[in-house]
Design a protein around this nucleic acid. Structure first.
Length: 420
DNA sequence: TCTGGGGTCCTAGGACCC
DNA sequence: TCTGGGGTCCTAGGACCC
């Protein structure tokens, strides 16, 4: 058998973070609101018990909240990010195989701890709580999908005290039998309906279905799910942090926006924010996307969704360039006469920048950076954009680069860059 | 007059290339 | 008269997750 996997999940993470810094909130219903205080994005157990739904619009439920003494907090992502880093840091002390899955969840490979899984998990839980004040739940199983199931049991069943080691067939069977399809990680309404139509109505049906049949009637993701439910790992633990494949900045507007000018301002600032995020990760992008949406909740409004991407000749992390590209894309999709609710900028085709290039974006005027940019511009003019994409930093066409690396065109290009 | 802001992966069709 | 086979890129959309 392969090594067991643990899923560690922070309980009601944002609400718990607020409580750490304001202990008076303990034992009380707490909700955290999205940007602009639009809707509920986190709830304490007490708030859940009041029937407050995830995503509930705050203004719509304001009176009910006040009646029940619900304590409301605007979100503070800087705080949550910091708390998350502390929790992950502690988890890293308990295994070398740590995959940070989201801001409040991590998968841990527990190879080598097989004979004391539960003890190890309890120790982990106790340490995180003691050092950060954040309560976590731990589910242990043979695969990631089953670890999710085990984690759910650990949370729901108070008798388990936050930890559930689910390795015996009887326990797996019992847990799955008490769940709906949509409780599974990776199955939501649409997929549950499709599965239902082919006779698969419960998690146990899915586990016992023929994988080839499931593949044929749905997709490869569901086929993997069948195997994962049987305890055969199909989703590897990814302990190396992967670079982002896209970076987005978007916002809903507080009131309908109708003019191109206002949208240009918004999109420019989103581009700047996204570019900042990108530079912090030492990335540059070769593709800038923009999208525009009207308010889909207002049936009386004419609806329009537009999106458009612009390809850059050279991967860049320069705010002015990206904002310029974003505004060009925006102008090509903007249509007069709509009431816009949301807009966003997406940076794609991300590439790791070298140290030199990393410095470049922040201090373009240094002699070395000027030389490098000069070389890239000359190459761009001389060879055309395909070749430039390689030269810039190993764009997603990188495989071509490997295949053709002996071609004179590529070699010249690369050597010229290296010579800078 | 209210309903977030990030992400990931998969599929499918058309353009284009050799 | 008939009409390959294999591949990439791009775009759009669907579905899901936290």
């Amino acid at each position: 058998m392969t090594a067991p996997v643990a899923l560690v999940d922070c309980n009601n993470f944002y609400a718990s973070c607020e409580r750490v810094f304001q202990p008076a909130l303990r034992g009380k219903p707490v909700v955290v609101l999205s940007n602009n205080d639009g809707c509920v994005i986190a709830r304490s157990n007490e708030a859940k018990a009041l029937g407050i739904e995830m995503g509930a619009p705050w203004l719509l439920h304001r009176e009910k909240f006040e009646r029940h003494g619900v304590i409301v907090r605007s979100s503070n992502y800087t705080l949550y990010g910091d708390m998350s880093a502390r929790v992950m840091n502690i988890l890293g002390r308990f295994t070398p195989d740590l995959e940070i899955y989201s801001i409040d969840e991590a998968f841990l490979g527990l190879g080598g701890f097989e004979n004391r899984l539960e003890t190890h998990a309890r120790e982990m839980r106790r340490t995180v709580l003691q050092w950060t004040g954040i309560p976590v739940s731990v589910g242990i199983a043979a695969t990631k999908t089953l670890a999710k199931v085990a984690n759910r049991c650990a949370k729901k069943d108070p008798a388990r005290n936050g930890v559930f080691e689910m390795l015996e067939a009887r326990e797996i069977e019992g847990a799955l039998s008490r769940m709906d399809l949509t409780d599974l990680w990776g199955v939501a309404g649409r997929m549950a309906a499709r599965l239902g139509a082919i006779g698969i109505k419960t998690p146990l049906h899915l586990r016992d279905a023929d994988p080839a049949f499931v593949r044929q009637r749905t997709n490869v993701v569901m086929q993997r799910m069948v195997m994962e439910l049987r305890g055969v790992p199909c989703l590897a633990l990814e302990d190396a942090v992967r670079d982002r494949k896209s970076i987005m900045a978007s916002r809903s507007f507080g009131r309908p926006v109708t003019t191109l000018h206002e949208l240009e301002e918004a999109v420019s600032s989103y581009a700047a924010r996204a570019a900042e995020k990108m530079r912090r990760q030492s990335l540059a992008c070769a593709h800038v996307g923009v999208f525009l949406e009207t308010n889909r909740f207002r049936a009386s409004d004419a609806q329009y969704n537009g999106s458009r991407g612009v390809r850059l000749p050279v991967a860049s992390a320069d705010t002015a360039k990206l904002a310029g590209a974003a505004c060009r894309a925006l102008r090509s999709i903007w249509k007069d006469g709509y009431r816009y609710k949301k807009a966003g900028v997406v940076l794609l085709d991300l590439v790791k920048t070298s140290t030199v290039q990393g410095d470049l974006w922040d201090s373009p005027d240094t002699p070395g950076n000027k030389r490098l940019m000069g070389a890239i511009d000359r190459l761009n003019a001389h060879y055309g954009r395909d070749t430039l994409a390689y030269a810039a930093a190993g764009h997603r066409k990188a495989w071509k680069l490997r295949r053709d690396h002996s071609s004179p065109r590529y070699t010249t290009c690369w050597e010229e860059l290296l010579a800078v």
